[in-house]
Structures are given as structure tokens and as C-alpha cells.
Design a protein around this nucleic acid. Structure first.
Lengths: 252, 252
DNA sequence: GTGTTTATCGTCAGGAAGACGACTATGATC
DNA sequence: GATCATAGTCGTCTTCCTGACGATAAACAC
């Protein structure tokens, strides 16, 4: 078929972000309140249009910086540089997903260490970290007693897919360190796994496992007592990105 | 921001397909020859524009049917129904990836049993199954001595990503059965793993492993000698989609 | 000091996987 | 028909990993 601009329908292309972090032992996602219709006043995932001269990953990194100030790095993550991990998640293109027009959204997944309060165009009341289970439950009430409407558009599905990706990916990759500050203890890393998977892990077996996996953790020599109790060794993320053997998520 | 159609740039959205199969002990992909510029005469992945009222997965299934006649089913695959497995792979949106205009392509991965010769709009000379290593090598010569130009657009990258997805996914899912006919032997399944991974596997350990994984294989009661040698039991794919424990890809 | 908390080391039993021997049941060849 | 080649299937043995859990260590609160 020759080139004919009328031969294909025009689409709007957006990026939406599932930004995850661990706060107070819970897996949380960044949500922003919509200021305009459709779904005005409802919570949604941050995102925006891809610009004409931008790659998809560039657009995602730009949106991430606008919403959180984080500097992104790609899936082939180098050692911890205090930026966020960013990778493409999936693309959502149901013809009915946006009532205004045909929008295809390329969702991205970002993993970040615990951060100060989010900003959404400088307006803190319109952005927040919320536990993912709170965002995903239908028709419940939030921690502040406010009735929780479901997320706008198909963002509940996107969030669920992002959470599932994160849950499975920390099994066989060193991605869990993306939730930690640049230096962290084995216990802090264990609490990340416990928060993301929602299970309790044996501290002794976990310690043996992560310290025994080559390339996962590199000791810095320092220690800390910020968690209370006996001082713990500090580590930073090692060069390995794939864990062999993988961490095993307990059954059920 | 209020709804303003001029506020976002228009994109063309396409689906491209990585269709994989195993033929003659080699992992092969479906390639079609381009009939028009750009990249006229070069090999490319099959694909086409998403229609105005179509979901992305619908568009991918339609393209797959047009190129191969296969009926697709989704990632939550039911028991083997002789259709192809189809899942979304990733989305490619570099501003320069198509010289004509801004095109975002949602690549999909399809896995199919060995098939009769492909058809591309009824023209067999413009479609073929080619070993993936042949399609991915730069500047070599094909099996027929014809010089091999690289695949059109960024299709070499898409194909490489699809192959890597298939290689890793047969580790922890029962997807390898999507390469087999509805009834198959343990040896045939092993040859699928060997072709996709490009390694030799121990027949005895492989047999113990797959027959011992609950839900992976169910015996049909029949036997076959189509591979020569002692008759082998026939199986069909069981209900399990995730393998626990996973198959282990041997180290390099 | 005593108790609490967290970190870290060690032990032991059960299971999974790699290496590989042995046996079985076909078709092909002489 | 005997022999051989080819595949398939069952066992064994050793090694490694994991889960369960006891024990010790080093901080802080009182």
C-alpha cells in the first residue's frame, strides 16, 4: 500500500506511570488527582502525552521527573545511583478506554526508594503515595475515611499489572535494591521483599541467601544502627542484575 | 488542561508480529518481503495498522490470521486447542523508526506449532520461515546463498526481544507446549527446548523433570513411533501455566 | 543489670538437579 | 532372523539449596 495519510486512523499516544515505593512497610504507588474531566476529582496514575520528537522512554522519564524530581535509569541498571529504575510495562489501547478520543497509553513501571512528599505541579494536595491495596480495592474507604472511588480510566488494571511485574521481577533480579537507598542493610532489603510480597520471611535464611548470591550485595564496610538492635553491616547493590539462583517467593 | 485536539501530536499505531515456530530443530520466525518503500524488497516482520475500532490484541490476532491462518488465544492459555499463543511483547516508538511519519508499533509475540508454508496475501514467495539466527545476523548470506540484508525498520531489535522473551518464558511457564501439536511426546517437547535455547538437554533428567511437574503434562494413553525407536507415550498440555519449580536453562 | 530488639552464624533434614548406568521396544540392515 | 541403531524410560548417587529453627552477638531502654 502506498503512503497515504488517510489510510490509517490518528491516535493520541500517552505514557502512564506506575511509580512504586515502600513506605512504612507497605508497597505504595504514586497517585494524582485529576483536575479536569473526564474522571474529574478522581485519582489516577501520573502520565501525559508523548511529544512529537520524543522517544517513549524519554517521555516516561520526563513525566517521572516532573512528578517526583527523580532521575531515571533504564532496565540495564548500573550500580545504585539514587535514581529510579524505569522500564516499559505494557501498552493499553482499548478503543473505549478514554471517552474523548482514541488514546493508546504506553505504561511504564518505576521503582524508587522512599521519597519526601510528592509534588504534582507544585500542588501537594493533588498527589500522594497510597498503599496499592488501598488504590486497588473497589468502593472502600481510604485511610482518611474518604470514600475511595476506583482509579480513573483503566488505571486499576495498569497498576495491578505493574505490581505483579514488580512482585515477580524481584524474584529473579536484583531490582529490590531499587527500593532501597544507596546504602542499606540486609534487614532493610528483607523488609522490602516482605512489603512487596506481603509475606514474612525468615531473617536467618534471607541473610544467608542474599549474602551468598554472587554479585547481589557488596559490603561498604560501614555499619548502622538506624533500625535499632545490633548494628548491621551496610551494603550497596552489586553488579549482578539477574539472580542465580533466584529468590523464592513463598507459596500462597 | 482542557480537551484540545491540537494539544497532542497525531501518531500512527501499528502492530508487528514476532511469530515463532520450531522447524527442523531450529527456532524460526515468520518474515515477509516488503513490496513498497521504504525498505522495498527487504525482509520484515508481518504487521499492519491498528484500525479505528480495534483493540490492540484484536489487531494482532487479525494480522496473525491474515498471515498464517492461525487462530490466536491469549496468555491465559486454556488447554491446547491448536491455535497459537499470542501475547503483547513491547512497544517501539522511536521518532526516527519510520522515515515516513511518526509510527508507534505495539509488537506482539506468537508461538505456533510447525505449520505448512506461510502465505502472505496468497503470495508464497513473499513470506517464509527463517531461522532466527539467520534473520538476526548482519550482512551474512542466507541458506539459499542470497545476501541477507538486515530486517527493515527496527525489526531486528523487535525480533531479538521476542526471541529473548520466548527463551526466558519457557523456563517458568508451560509455553513450550505452544510449539507442539496437540498431542506430543516428551522427546518432542525436549527438542523444542533444545531448539529454543540452543543447547542439548539430558533426555533422562528432562523426562523425570517434566513428568514430575504437576499439571504440566497429562498422558493421553496413546503412543507413537513417529520419531523412530521405542514407542513413546503421548501427552497433551495440562492445565498448569506456571511451572513450579521452573525448568532450568543450563549455564553457558 | 535485665529485657528487648535486631543481626548473624550454625545445624540438620528433605528435596531437586546433574551425571550417568541400565534396560526396553521399535525399525533398519545384513 | 540376528544384529544394530535409535529413542524412550527407570534408577542411583552425589551435590547443592532450602526451610525450620537453635544459639550467640551487640546495640538501646529502663
Amino acid at each position: 500500500m502506498p503512503y497515504d495519510p488517510s489510510a490509517f486512523p490518528p491516535f493520541a499516544v500517552t505514557v502512564d506511570l506506575v511509580v512504586l515505593t515502600v513506605r512504612r512497610h507497605a508497597l505504595c504507588a504514586l497517585a494524582v488527582r485529576r483536575g479536569e474531566p473526564p474522571f474529574q476529582g478522581r485519582w489516577a496514575l501520573p502520565g501525559g502525552f508523548v511529544r512529537a520528537d520524543e522517544d517513549l522512554s524519554q517521555a516516561a522519564a520526563r513525566e517521572l521527573a516532573e512528578e517526583t524530581g527523580l532521575c531515571a535509569h533504564g532496565p540495564a541498571a548500573p550500580a545504585q545511583d539514587n535514581g529510579a529504575h524505569l522500564e516499559q510495562l505494557a501498552t493499553y489501547g482499548d478503543p473505549e478506554r478514554d471517552p474523548r478520543m482514541r488514546v493508546v497509553s504506553v505504561a511504564h513501571l518505576a521503582l524508587a526508594p522512599d521519597l519526601p512528599a510528592p509534588r504534582a505541579g507544585g500542588d501537594a494536595s493533588n498527589a500522594r503515595w497510597a498503599p496499592v491495596e488501598e488504590l486497588l480495592q473497589q468502593g472502600g474507604y481510604g485511610r482518611d475515611g474518604e470514600p475511595m472511588a476506583p482509579l480513573a480510566f483503566d488505571h486499576a488494571q495498569i497498576l495491578a499489572d505493574g505490581v505483579e511485574r514488580a512482585r515477580s521481577k524481584i524474584e529473579y533480579s536484583s531490582l529490590a535494591t531499587a527500593f532501597c537507598p544507596s546504602e542499606f542493610t540486609v534487614g532493610e532489603l528483607r523488609r522490602v521483599y516482605e512489603a512487596v510480597w506481603g509475606v514474612a520471611l525468615d531473617p536467618r535464611n534471607f541473610h544467608r541467601k542474599v549474602t551468598g548470591t554472587p554479585g547481589f550485595l557488596v559490603p561498604t564496610g560501614g555499619t548502622t544502627t538506624r533500625q535499632g538492635g545490633r548494628p548491621a553491616q551496610l551494603f550497596r547493590a552489586g553488579g549482578a542484575t539477574l539472580l542465580n539462583p533466584p529468590m523464592l517467593r513463598p507459596e500462597v
